[in-house]
Design a protein around this nucleic acid. Structure first.
Length: 390
DNA sequence: TTGGAGTCAATAGG
DNA sequence: CCTATTGACTCCAA
């Protein structure tokens, strides 16, 4: 077996990656990821060539985010690896972010440069099977460390925490030394910003308001806030979040639609499906379809790609580069190109389960239309016509 | 300032 | 433990 000569000579982990997001948040002391010592970031990938992730993101070809996340989920579950460990050590993200990313990847072309980074990291991570081993080793080490600590502090009520990349510097000292405004939240959890949790009725009301006006004016927001007895900022945040999450749902649908119809990943259907989606009812009576207590959201149509059986074995040179025309590429970039069959599999395979249950989707689309209208009006320099009381 | 994109981190369920 | 959800926050561009 002729091994490709350009094997990775990843020894010098010296790739100095410039600083990144400095969590200079002055909001809450929670000793999260600091960035003092040598490596500013969790240091994701191994050495590789001296390219920074950002550079690789910039030169990366279009990636199939859906296929990538699918694969990552598969690998993680197969090996009993958690999102937390994966996220913190490979992507530099928290568990919640990873969960979100894996569950609802946005299509590549809709991602910003920053948003593409995690996918490039994932692709790179997948490109070498040995990475899984490394992660599993980390997991073992973590567990060992945990056991050790637990053993050492028997019976004592110690608020120990798992420090991953050397960041625990808070112990052994008596709980007396009060740093500036550091933790004192033990006594009064109340003083620590209770985290607003909107009641189902409140969400319902907000959604209704959204249906009417995805972009409420400050005045409308004030009204909503006072009528629902919420802070103005909460209402504002809710609209921000809801809009962006609705948008994402639509992206997902787009991906699934693209996968459903035998289309190439490059060809973006200008208009998916369609046919009589004229019914943009503005005022739907009530969204009773939602069984509050349990999200009846169940659009999981697991499309299994039949051709996902074999995988690369021991660190073998993937990317056989079958295509005659080999463009000038260098080292790791290959792994970005070389995602096996997943691309074709995800797009071609698919006797998808086209469910005729998209009533909620309809509404979302309708709202999205309002969204567009809003922008057009804004562009036309006009003002919003009227108010609504939800 | 406003809105979008990305995330964080608390928290609800398993 | 682990994952999914989601209000709030940071950064950035128009």
């Amino acid at each position: 077996a002729p091994e490709s000569p350009l094997s990775s000579a990843e020894e010098s982990v010296k790739s100095q990656q410039e600083e990144q997001m400095c969590r200079a948040s002055i909001q809450e002391p929670s000793e999260t990821s600091e960035s003092q010592p040598g490596t500013p970031l969790p240091l994701p990938l191994p050495g590789h060539s001296g390219l920074s992730i950002q550079e690789m993101v910039a030169m990366s070809p279009e990636l199939d985010t859906y296929a990538i996340t699918k694969k990552v989920k598969e690998v993680l579950t197969d090996n009993n690896l958690g999102q937390r460990l994966f996220g913190e050590s490979i992507l530099g993200l928290t568990q919640g972010s990873v969960s979100d990313l894996l569950a609802r990847p946005k299509p590549w072309h809709k991602l910003s440069l920053k948003g593409r980074e995690p996918f490039v990291r994932m692709q790179l991570w997948l490109s070498d099977p040995r990475n899984v081993e490394k992660l599993m080793d980390m997991k073992r080490m973590e567990k060992k460390a945990y056991m050790k600590r637990r053993h050492s502090s028997i019976g004592e009520s110690h608020s120990l925490e798992t420090g991953l990349s050397g960041s625990d510097l808070t112990q052994s000292s008596s709980p007396q030394n009060l740093s500036q405004q550091q933790q004192q939240q033990q006594q009064q959890p109340q003083l620590k910003k209770p985290r607003v949790v909107l009641a189902p009725e409140e969400k319902e009301a907000l959604k209704r308001a959204y249906q009417q006006k995805p972009y409420p004016s400050p005045k409308t927001i004030e009204e909503l806030a006072s009528q629902l007895n919420l802070k103005t900022s909460t209402v504002i945040n809710w609209f921000h979040n809801y809009r962006s999450r609705i948008r994402r749902e639509l992206f997902i649908e787009e991906i699934q639609a693209a996968a459903g119809e035998g289309g190439s990943p490059s060809a973006r259907p200008g208009k998916s499906g369609g046919e009589g989606d004229n019914s943009c009812d503005g005022t739907e009576s009530d969204s009773t379809a939602e069984g509050r207590p349990s999200g009846s959201e169940e659009r999981k149509c697991l499309l299994e790609s039949p051709s996902l059986s074999h995988r690369d074995e021991e660190g073998e040179a993937e990317f056989p580069s079958a295509s005659g025309s080999s463009r000038p590429r260098g080292g790791i970039i290959d792994s970005l190109f070389g995602i096996p069959e997943s691309v074709s599999a995800a797009t071609a395979a698919a006797p998808p389960c086209r469910n005729p249950k998209d009533s909620s989707l309809r509404k979302k689309k309708a709202a999205n239309l309002n969204n567009i209208i809003h922008r057009l009006e804004k562009a036309a320099n006009r003002d919003e016509p009227h108010e609504w009381e939800f």
